[in-house]
Amino acid sequence: MKVEEGEQALLAYFSSSNSAHEAVLALRRAGFRTAQLDRVGRFGVRFNDRYNNPLANQANTITGLTLYSADINPQVKTDTRALLGADPSVSGVGLTNYGVAGNEGFLVTVVVPQQRVEEANKIITQYGGRL
């Protein structure tokens, strides 16, 4: 993603992937061509993209549910899995604004002309984003 002269990059955080995805679609419908959604976290691991739903028997690990890390091979990366499992968010004793999954783990980045920053900001906040 490249920001040209006269443009600005806006970074917005969302607590829900659905809201973030809807915001990206709305931004694109408004004519903002460069808008993308990413999942963010505090650990240097590759996060899985699949949906971990314990009610549908689709959750393999507790860290997969809380830190989106179910794709870490349990036989190869046992040290990584142990460290992730020790995170306070996994135990359910997350601290206020600690960054547990579902807090604000989704990032929407959009490049906008400077004269349309307020318009993009309005769309983002309409879908629950925080700049």
Score class of each variant (00 low, 15 high):
residue 1 M to N: 08
residue 1 M to S: 13
residue 2 K to H: 09
residue 2 K to C: 03
residue 3 V to N: 03
residue 7 E to C: 05
residue 7 E to W: 00
residue 11 L to D: 01
residue 12 A to R: 01
residue 13 Y to T: 02
residue 14 F to M: 03
residue 14 F to S: 02
residue 14 F to P: 01
residue 15 S to F: 01
residue 16 S to R: 06
residue 17 S to G: 06
residue 21 H to Y: 09
residue 28 R to S: 04
residue 28 R to V: 10
residue 28 R to W: 09
residue 29 R to K: 15
residue 31 G to M: 06
residue 32 F to Y: 14
residue 36 Q to W: 07
residue 36 Q to P: 00
residue 40 V to Y: 03
residue 42 R to N: 09
residue 43 F to T: 09
residue 43 F to K: 05
residue 44 G to N: 10
residue 44 G to M: 09
residue 45 V to L: 12
residue 45 V to R: 07
residue 47 F to Y: 15
residue 48 N to L: 04
residue 50 R to I: 10
residue 50 R to Y: 09
residue 52 N to C: 13
residue 52 N to Y: 08
residue 53 N to G: 09
residue 53 N to S: 14
residue 54 P to L: 11
residue 58 Q to A: 11
residue 58 Q to S: 05
residue 59 A to L: 13
residue 61 T to G: 08
residue 62 I to V: 12
residue 63 T to N: 08
residue 64 G to K: 13
residue 65 L to E: 15
residue 65 L to F: 04
residue 67 L to V: 11
residue 68 Y to N: 14
residue 73 N to W: 08
residue 74 P to A: 10
residue 75 Q to W: 12
residue 79 D to T: 12
residue 80 T to S: 12
residue 81 R to C: 14
residue 82 A to H: 07
residue 82 A to Q: 10
residue 84 L to D: 13
residue 88 P to K: 11
residue 93 V to P: 00
residue 93 V to Q: 12
residue 93 V to I: 06
residue 94 G to W: 14
residue 94 G to F: 11
residue 95 L to M: 06
residue 95 L to A: 09
residue 96 T to V: 12
residue 98 Y to V: 00
residue 99 G to P: 04
residue 100 V to H: 13
residue 106 F to Y: 13
residue 106 F to Q: 01
residue 110 V to W: 02
residue 110 V to N: 04
residue 112 V to Y: 03
residue 113 P to R: 14
residue 115 Q to M: 06
residue 117 V to E: 13
residue 118 E to M: 02
residue 120 A to F: 02
residue 120 A to W: 00
residue 121 N to V: 04
residue 122 K to C: 01
residue 123 I to T: 05
residue 125 T to Q: 14
residue 129 G to M: 07
residue 130 R to L: 08
